[in-house]
Structures are given as C-alpha cells and as structure tokens.
Simulated scan of single mutants.
Amino acid sequence: MIGILIKYFGYTNLIAGYDPDAVTNEDALAAFVGNRVLAVALLTVAVGGVEYISTGDGTPWHWYAYGALVAVIAA
C-alpha cells in the first residue's frame, strides 16, 4: 500500500528522511522508491507462499534467499 501511495500518487512525504529542499526531481524519487517498496512487498508475498507450501524439511533456504534479495533491492 505504501509503495502504491508513493509511486502512483506522489506521497513522497512517506519516505523516511525526505527533505523537499534537497530533492531536485520529486517524480523520479517517487518512482525510484515506490518501485523498490513494491518489489520488497512482492518478494515478501512470494516468500510467504513458499513458506505456506514448503514441506517443512527444516531448511529455511527461502529466508536466506529473501534476505539476500532484499539486500540487493535496497542497494
């Protein structure tokens, strides 16, 4: 929901540390941050689905992949 508000409706004030005086292109910032928030949300839903259907063999490989992918998206 927050990603949609930032990207499609321009609520850049939802971005932590947002300083309107330091931003030169507010639309580009909204698209950049909104895309990343939406990507992490989609990834979270996907990992939840994997967790739901997993066999429970004791290996939390999907959480390792989740952490790595969130780190890549945040970089």
Rank of each mutant, 00 (worst) to 15 (best):
Y18K: 01
L29M: 13
W63C: 07
A46Q: 07
L42V: 08
N35F: 00
F9Y: 14
L69R: 05
T24P: 01
L14N: 08
V47W: 05
I15A: 03
Y66R: 04
P20I: 06
D19N: 15
D27E: 15
I53W: 09
Y52D: 06
V50H: 04
A28P: 00
T59Q: 07
G67T: 01
A22W: 00
A65P: 00
V23D: 02
A39Y: 06
V50M: 10
N13P: 00
L42H: 09
L42I: 06
T24W: 01
A31D: 09
V50F: 12
G34E: 04
Y66M: 14
A16Q: 05
E26P: 02
I73M: 02
N13G: 04
I2S: 10
G48D: 07
I4C: 03
I6P: 07
A30T: 13
D27S: 14
A22M: 04
N13L: 08
V45Y: 03
W63R: 03
G3N: 00
A46E: 02
F9S: 14
G48V: 00
G48R: 08
G34L: 05
T55G: 13
D27N: 15
A41P: 10
R36K: 11
L29Y: 07
A68I: 09
L5K: 15
A16E: 04
G48Q: 13
Y18R: 04
A16F: 13
E26N: 09
E26D: 13
Y11A: 08
H62D: 11
I6V: 15
V23C: 08
A31Q: 05
D27F: 15
T59C: 02
